[in-house]
């Protein structure tokens, strides 16, 4: 479970996140939506302890991320899949990451198979396509078998087969009772993947509801989203 409570993050005078509160529950896929600059990535960074809030707090399973022991065994995160050093092999990337949290290397080959990189494990990361890096990032997030997953734009660079694979993976992770928070700009994909939606704009909460209740009658998710964003503009 992820809890964000009264979270505000100011950069200078402007607030990237403005008194934001929401809870992400286990057992379903929660879509995290908002236009560019809405504060999604800032919120995810604060949840992961990469940035400190100006006020408010964020907790994972009831405690701040930075106080978790062996955090990768509680939370798996995919932030920017292309943010990896290219000189290492894919399996070596997972090895150092596993070692930081005392996770055994034994699962790595299986994990590479799971994300469809079985043949690419011994290739250098720099030579992988964005879609393959995205799969490697998912493998990194799953490394510690965490109960909570935070995925920022996991569909970037994936081909149609990859998108279908990701949809199935997210659904199975949620069905296993995990907490799954996914940010995306792809409304058509969110419409068929997410169970619950958290929509933010200008750092503020615009909606926190089941997707079936969010989408207005006779409109698509995309149309509803655009309408909600417009209505929130000053």
């Amino acid at each position: 479970m992820i809890e964000v409570i009264g979270l505000t993050r100011r950069f200078g005078r402007s607030a990237a996140v403005d008194d934001l509160s929401f809870t992400v529950n286990p057992g379903k896929i929660t879509g995290f939506l908002g236009p560019n600059g809405a504060g999604k990535t800032t919120t995810l960074r604060i949840i992961l302890g990469l940035d400190r809030p100006t006020t408010g707090r964020a907790t994972v399973n009831g405690v701040p991320y930075r106080t978790l022991d062996r955090p990768l065994t509680h939370v798996g995160a995919l932030l920017d899949a292309s943010a990896v050093q290219g000189g290492r092999r894919a399996d070596q990337h997972l090895q150092w990451l596993a070692r930081t949290n005392g996770i055994s290397f034994r699962g790595i080959n299986g994990l590479l198979e799971t994300v469809g990189l079985g043949d690419a494990g011994r290739r250098r990361v720099g030579g992988l396509s964005l879609g393959m890096k995205q799969r490697l990032g998912v493998a990194a997030a799953l490394l510690g078998d965490p109960e909570v997953l935070l995925l920022d734009e996991p569909l970037n660079g994936l081909d149609p087969e990859g998108i279908r694979w990701m949809r199935g993976l997210l659904k199975s992770l949620a069905a296993e009772g995990r907490t799954v928070l996914v940010s995306s700009h792809l409304m058509h994909e969110m419409a068929v993947t997410a169970d619950h939606l958290i929509v933010i704009g200008r750092g503020r909460l615009l909606a926190d509801t089941e997707i079936t209740q969010f989408v207005r009658p006779g409109m698509s998710l995309e149309d509803t989203f655009m309408r909600v964003i417009e209505e929130s503009a000053p």
């Binding site: 302890g49 990469l50 991320y65 292309s82 943010a83 050093q85 990451l97 930081t100």
Partner: peptide, 11 residues
């Protein structure tokens, strides 16, 4: 940008 992965793994 990999430093973020490093700090997520070791806060």
């Amino acid at each position: 940008g990999m430093i973020h992965t490093t700090f997520v793994a070791t806060p």
